[in-house]
Structure formats: structure tokens, C-alpha cells
Amino acid sequence: MKADQQAFVDALLGRGAAPAGLTGSQRGLAAYRNNIQALSAQALAVPFARLREELGEDEFASLAWTFWRVHPPESGDLGRWGGMLAGFLVERAGEASGLPDLARLDWALHQAERAEDAALDAESLALLGSHAPDTLWLQLRPGVSLLAQTEGAVLVWRQGWRGQSQALADLDAVFVRAVLDGVNLAEALEAAAVKGSGAETDFDFAAWLQAALQNAWLQGVRATPPNRTTTSS
């Protein structure tokens, strides 16, 4: 029975012939397959709108169907399907194609839009004036991530209900990556200072903080270390 079920799934996904004795016509099987094929393109287009625009509708639909057959959804929430697409594109098209970077950006923006809502803890900002930097940790809002793209670092976040992105200067990227890695403020500042030694301008924490407040990157300042869960990539 289990083998028959797997054979049916394989036939449905175009991986093999229908099992002998399967009730229903080949026309019915083809109809099911066409429905799933259309669903794959519709579902993947939600998080990967920029990739779809780059490839065109027909090529994107072909990609979606191939990806579905190799990495089918693991849950009924199709909004969670697509996290492996960048790696899939590396194997199929290579990094030089630019498609994996585009997929990474699309997925990060999608994740940011699905992230938990969190308001700024404005009162916690007072800790910056009363505590030493090595006793403080910055907490960025859910959905904030840092991408290492071919053209440089890109910060992704949610403002309102829309995903946003912008390129970061090297020192800002070093600082944000340190914050996302869960180090204290003093260590994050030191990392940016070491990177900036030489001809580069020193990292301007005051300017970064102003941007973090204006763009809703920062959730608050904490006097206890967070769980070290890296969200950079």
C-alpha cells in the first residue's frame, strides 16, 4: 500500500509512470498534475515576485514546477515554501547568473513581512546613557536580516507591513552582523572600529542609531544577553 501511494505521488509529480491497477484515467491524473503545476507557480510567485519578473512568466513557471518536484512543500502553509530556492539556483544556474542573490533577497523580504510585529521599547534607550557598552546588547526587530550579496551587504527589514531593503556600507554591515550574532555593544563597536582602521571613515554609531530608529530596525536596548541566534546570511 505504501509503495502504491509513493508510486502515485511520483506519477502525479511526473517522476514516473502511474502504478498498475490505478483507478481513474490517465486524463484524470494529467488534470491533477496540471493543477499542481499551476499551484507551484502561483505559490512561488508570492515570495519571489522580483525573480518572476526577471525570468518572465513562462520560465518562472517552469522553474517553480521543477523546484516543486525536487523540494515539495513540507507543510500546508505554502508561504513557508521556498527557503531552499537560492541553493537550488546555485546548483542549476550558478552564482554568476545573479539569480541566487535575487532569490535570497526575495526570500528575506518575504520572511520580514511574515515576521512577528514588535514595537520600539523607547524607554530602554535610556540604558545607552547609564550603562557601559560592554553591559548592553542591541535587540533588532523580528525580520531584520543581513544578506551577503555579490554586490555587497544588504539589510532587510519590515517597515509597516512591507519588506524593505538597502545596501550597507562595509562598517555598518560589520556592526549589524555583530549585533545579529548577539555580541554586546562594546564588541560590536570594536568590530566596526577594527574593520575601519586605515583609510576608511570611522563607524558613526550616532548616525546608525538615528537610522535604526527612523527605519524601525531597532526594537530595544537590553542589559542581559540575548539568545545567540544568528539571522545574518
Rank of each mutant, 00 (worst) to 15 (best):
M1G: 09
K2H: 13
A3W: 04
Q5A: 07
V9C: 06
A11Q: 06
A17L: 10
L22M: 12
S25A: 03
Q26L: 14
A30V: 08
A30I: 10
Y32V: 05
R33C: 05
A38G: 13
L39C: 08
A43S: 15
L44A: 04
L44H: 06
A45Q: 09
R50I: 00
R50F: 02
G56R: 07
G56K: 07
F60K: 08
F60R: 09
S62A: 15
A64I: 06
A64W: 07
H71R: 13
H71N: 13
S75D: 13
G82Y: 06
G82F: 08
G82V: 08
G87K: 11
V90K: 10
E95Q: 15
S97W: 09
G98D: 07
L102K: 06
R104W: 11
E116V: 01
E116W: 00
E123P: 05
S124C: 05
L125E: 01
S130V: 10
W137P: 03
L138P: 02
Q139C: 05
Q139R: 08
V144S: 08
L146M: 08
Q149A: 14
T150N: 00
T150P: 00
E151Q: 15
A153K: 04
V154D: 07
S165E: 12
A167K: 09
A169W: 02
D170W: 06
D170P: 03
L171M: 03
L171P: 01
A173G: 15
F175A: 01
R177F: 11
R177S: 10
A186H: 03
A188Q: 04
E190K: 09
T201L: 13
D204H: 12
D204F: 08
L209E: 12
L213H: 00
V221Y: 03
T224W: 14
T224F: 14
P226K: 04
P226G: 03
R228P: 15
T229F: 14
